[in-house]
Amino acid sequence: MDGHCTCGRIRFRLTDRPLFVHACHCTWCQRETGGPHAVNAMIETGRIEILADDPIEILTPSASGRGQIILRCPDCCVALWSHYAGAGRKLAFVRVGTLADPAACPPDIHIFTATKQPWYVIPEGVPAVPEYYDRAQYWPPASLARRAALMDG
């Protein structure tokens, strides 16, 4: 899956399917996106291939208090992916809207729905939780294995 920023300076490729895709309805994601939620595809950072130029890193506050590193285009400033304190730089949260075919990565789960906008309707059949969740309950076994290998490595 290929992706790019708005101006096209930064181009990248996901060399594998994402581990899991979140639609996060927390108030922080609403503020950062200017919309009802963020949609992030989690993937091992080593499975992101930079095709053109390098994004810049911006340390941004997060609800956890430990911050996140957002990689952005230095020209158009579009957020491409983030690294959160939990997995550090090993795991990237790629903004699905930056992919050439965002429809290929629909959310596997909606999280932090306790603060979702009341007018946003979650599609029927998609798991939704008020806050975070137990990974073992929702992730496919292959994704759990990939994550375990990443964190052990």
Rank of each mutant, 00 (worst) to 15 (best):
I43A: 08
E57Y: 03
F112D: 00
M1H: 13
S64V: 12
P61V: 02
M42N: 08
I111A: 02
A149T: 01
N40E: 11
T27R: 13
H83T: 09
L80H: 04
T6A: 14
P55C: 12
F20A: 05
T6Y: 14
A103M: 11
G67P: 02
G8R: 09
G67W: 02
M151V: 13
R135C: 01
G97R: 03
Y133E: 05
Y120L: 06
L150W: 04
R89I: 05
G153Q: 04
E49M: 04
P123Y: 04
Q137D: 13
V21R: 11
A79V: 02
R31V: 14
G88W: 07
P130W: 07
P127D: 08
I109Q: 00
E131C: 01
R147S: 11
A92T: 01
A148Y: 03
A63G: 01
P141C: 01
C29W: 00
L59A: 14
G8T: 03
L14V: 06
W139Q: 06
S82A: 15
Q137E: 13
T98N: 00
D75V: 15
A136R: 12
W139T: 03
V78Q: 04
E32L: 09
A92S: 15
D134I: 07
T98E: 08
R66I: 01
R72V: 13
I122M: 05
I50G: 02
A104C: 06
G8Y: 01
D75L: 13
P107K: 10
D134M: 09
F20I: 07
P140H: 02
W139D: 04
V21G: 01
R147N: 13
P118A: 12
H110S: 06
R17D: 15
D53Y: 09
P107V: 05
F112H: 10
H37M: 11
R11N: 09
V96D: 09
Q137S: 10
V78Y: 03
C5V: 01
P140M: 05
A79P: 08
H4K: 15
F93A: 14
D16A: 15
P61S: 10
P102T: 00
P130R: 02
E44V: 11
H83E: 02
L59E: 14
P61D: 13
A148V: 12
D2T: 03
D108I: 10
I109Y: 07
I69W: 04
L91H: 09
I50L: 15
I48L: 14
W119T: 08
R66W: 11
L71H: 14
L14M: 14
